[in-house]
Write a protein that binds this DNA or RNA. Structure first.
Lengths: 204, 204
DNA sequence: TACTTTTTATAACAAATGATTTAAAACGCA
DNA sequence: TGCGTTTTAAATCATTTGTTATAAAAAGTA
């Protein structure tokens, strides 16, 4: 019928992700993008539309591979394990992020979402999903007695979401192991039921 | 000796702050800046240097008026009051921030600091000062018994710093009163000494 | 093989970008 | 009043920006 594409859409999208992720939206020009993706600008416009559309697709691609199966995988664990493993993985990734790219979703939340309704919805939707994941974990833990019941699951899920975002911001200017691993200790302690807290205390 | 300035440096710096704060560094052109400051581009270059230098001065100006006396004012209160008042003020400001500008320091931490050593130092320095403020409050509270002693002051100060940054990120896409006020409740509870926690529990 | 369709490569477009030039205007000091 | 100096205004500089024509190249179908 016609000439076929020379490039693999997923491959070039991944390259677009890396470019936008590292430099952000405004600081990345179409030519930067073309070089990073190994395409001509004409091919980009033909395949995706304009610059904003490429960013839109790139963000979806990032979200898909960053939150897609991950949340589900963690949820198979014991509630408190799931939460702790989630945070430890975020911290590990932050500490090995030598380019200090942070989290592309958080970057989008600050650079593009405030001035673009559609991105606002996308970002806020993903954040709500993460919050819901935390809430499910906490509710499960409160039911089996492994998580403290004095604070509501909703409030604690919000605390975890806030802490997560805080870590991702902090890591971009101060990616220090002691700082990041230290700041989650009190958060994990907050999850512990009172009885266990007393027990720990008696051995201290 | 020579022709005097027609503008007040502090006034135009404040206008530059508002422009950069709302739109960020890359999305603000020199002409945007000139219009916002009520100056010609020539005057800007003559008075400040290049675009980066204006941003540098604007960020200093913002930090000065945002963190300058504020931290000191809070520190005059009782330790736990100081921390709680600090967070309530941040949340109030976030909820009344109709333009969703967030915190210019956090914005800088994500947009410019990762690619600019000098801004890296500035941002990380201010964050360290906030952290130190939290730590001093916590240590004072631990000494007078109003703050829990089971977690180290360093760890809890990190938690507060992370929570603060998380709130500022979250507020830019989801400035919801319930969410923000809810997420700090478990954090404040974490500060409470165990004895008090038990007491609260007995009345619940 | 010729036709149709899509992708490519190259070049170009108008507009915007950061930055500077030029010359007029405005002050202090002699 | 004139001199020296700095600020201002307007125009202009070379690049870069996002985007689009143009035409050649590459495939499937007839």
């Amino acid at each position: 019928m016609a000439r076929p594409r020379e490039f693999d859409e997923n491959k070039v999208l991944q390259l677009a992700v890396e470019q936008f992720w590292e430099r952000g939206y405004e600081a990345t020009s179409i030519r930067d993008l073309a070089q990073a993706m190994g395409l001509t600008t004409a091919s980009i416009y033909n395949a995706f539309g304009d610059k904003r559309a490429v960013y839109r697709r790139a963000l979806d691609f990032y979200v898909e591979q960053s939150f897609g199966d991950r949340v589900g995988r963690f949820e198979k664990r014991l509630p408190r394990d799931a939460i702790q493993a989630f945070f430890h993985e975020i911290i590990d990734r932050s500490l090995s992020d030598t380019k200090r790219k942070g989290c592309m979703l958080v970057n989008s939340a600050l650079e593009v979402a405030p001035h673009d309704e559609e991105f606002q919805r996308v970002v806020s939707g993903v954040l709500s999903q993460v919050e819901a994941f935390f809430r499910r974990c906490i509710e499960a833990g409160q039911n089996d007695g492994s998580i403290d019941r004095r604070q509501s699951a909703t409030d604690m899920a919000g605390t975890l979401l806030g802490t997560l975002l805080g870590i991702r911001v902090l890591a971009r200017t101060r990616p220090e192991k002691n700082l990041l691993e230290g700041l989650i200790r009190p958060v994990f302690a907050m999850l512990e039921p009172e009885s266990k807290q007393q027990l720990d205390q008696s051995f201290a």
